[in-house]
Structure formats: C-alpha cells, structure tokens
Simulated scan of single mutants.
Amino acid sequence: MNLLGQTRKAIVIGATGMVGQQLVTGLLEQHSYTEVVILVRESLKLTHPKLIQVIVNWDELEKYESAFHQADDLFCCLGTTIKKAGSQAAFRKVDLEYPVTAAKIAKRHGIKQFIGISSMGANAKSRVFYSRTKGQFEEEVKKTGIPSIHFVRPSLLLGDRKEHRTGEKMGEVFLRLFDPLLKLGKGRQFRAIPGSLVAAAMIRIALQEQKGIHIYSNHEIREIAESQPLSQK
C-alpha cells in the first residue's frame, strides 16, 4: 500500500457514466496517480499510459480480484435508473449489490479509501425505494471496515449523458431557472450541480486521506470542488 506523498493506484467502477468519465479524466491528469484501473462491461475508446481497462462480468466480480491488488482508492460512480434497469431488483444490483461487492473485495486486498456517489435523502429506512436503496448502499459499505469511507450526496447532476432522461432533464431546466434563488441558505442543498464538480470534489477528498466515515452534502461538494483549482501534482 502506498504511503502519503507516494504514487498511488485508483480503481474506478462506473467509469462510463457522466461523473465517472470526468473522474477518470481527472485522475489520469493527477501526477499522484500512476495507475488508474477501470472495471467496465465493454472496452472504452480511451487510451492513456496510466489507464488499465478490465472487462468484467459484474455478476461474477470475484473472478477479477487481481485488479484490486495494491490499490489505494476505490471510486464508485455506479448508478442507473429503474427505467433503464427494467425493475427494482435490477436497479438494486447496480446501485447496491455491485458496489458493495467491489468494496468487500477491495477491503480484502487492503484498500484504504472508498469514495462513492450516493444521493440526497439517502436513508436505509426510507419509504422511498430510491432513497432506501442508496441508504442501504451506504450502510453496507460502512460494514466493510475500510478505514476511510466517503459518500458524496449531490443534488440533480448537470452534464451530458449518453442516455436521455426526461424527468431529470425537466428537473434540470427547473433548477437552472431558479438557481439564483438557491444560492443562499438551505437552498444550496437543492442547487443542481455539474458532474465535473462532483468528480473534482471526489479526487480532492481522496487526496486529503481523512480516516473515518464522512458524508458530504450538495453544497459541501461544490465548496470542496470550487475552493481552489485541483492541483495536478
């Protein structure tokens, strides 16, 4: 395992999504990271000397344990919608089962940090299926015993997506319209946030190497990302 100040290895799950793509790009630009491993279903049209793509069957993730060897940070950007997944059971696989399995494997290989995207309102006891699943995701990752666990809870994400999400697009228009009114007070929690800022915040959080369990609200994510330009050293 790499020590503070030395080079480090990152693993990214969910690298094909809006935030995941920007996260991978940011990690590759960081001099601190000499190896970035992404676990994907299909190979991406992306090449870089530090990038390693591992094609996986998510239902048999244990077969790819070697990819987790000597990694420092596990970044989780996995997420879908019930519409795209097709059912609540399929949604749970992507947003709960796969990330938790990856976290457990990573822990067995001595990983020190987990940095994952959750959601506003995540609560394992919520009556809302989406919020309950996200809350269960957080609770199960906490149980792994990884020394440093970080959950970012963004509001609606802004940015280009591969698939069209009608509901989220309507929400984006609404939040953009009222954004000036949401910049102060409790409104900051509901401001739509660019995926690029979420990715930048996740990298900065990882580089701070704070032990324990940490949860970052929507406005805290923005503050971390915008506090200063992300150093490439």
Rank of each mutant, 00 (worst) to 15 (best):
F114L: 04
I52M: 01
G20V: 06
W58N: 07
G20A: 04
K125M: 10
V54K: 02
H69A: 13
G17M: 09
S66F: 08
V19C: 08
K45V: 15
G26R: 10
E62I: 08
G17R: 02
Q53R: 00
C76E: 04
L27I: 12
E42Y: 11
L46P: 00
Q136M: 06
G110P: 11
K63N: 12
V94F: 09
T16R: 07
S32I: 10
L39A: 08
K84P: 06
S87V: 15
T81M: 14
S126K: 01
L74F: 01
K50E: 14
E65Y: 05
R127F: 04
E62R: 07
V94N: 13
L39H: 08
K142I: 13
D72G: 05
E60T: 11
E62S: 10
L23F: 12
A124C: 02
K50V: 15
V54P: 04
K50D: 11
A85Q: 13
W58R: 14
D73C: 09
R41N: 13
H31W: 01
N123C: 00
S87E: 10
L78A: 01
F68H: 05
T80I: 08
S32N: 10
I82Q: 15
G20W: 00
L51M: 09
C77T: 11
V56I: 03
S43Y: 07
I117Q: 01
V56G: 01
N57S: 10
V36F: 04
A102D: 02
L78Q: 07
I111F: 09
Y64V: 05
E35F: 12
Q113S: 10
A90G: 14
R132E: 10
E29W: 09
T101G: 03
L44W: 02
Y33C: 06
E97V: 14
T25Q: 14
D95V: 10
V36G: 02
L44K: 14
H109R: 10
I105A: 02
D59V: 12
G86D: 15
E42H: 14
S118Y: 04
G86I: 07
L28A: 12
F114V: 09
D72N: 12
G86Q: 13
V24C: 06
G135A: 04
I115T: 06
I117Y: 00
A103R: 07
K104I: 06
A124G: 03
V36P: 00
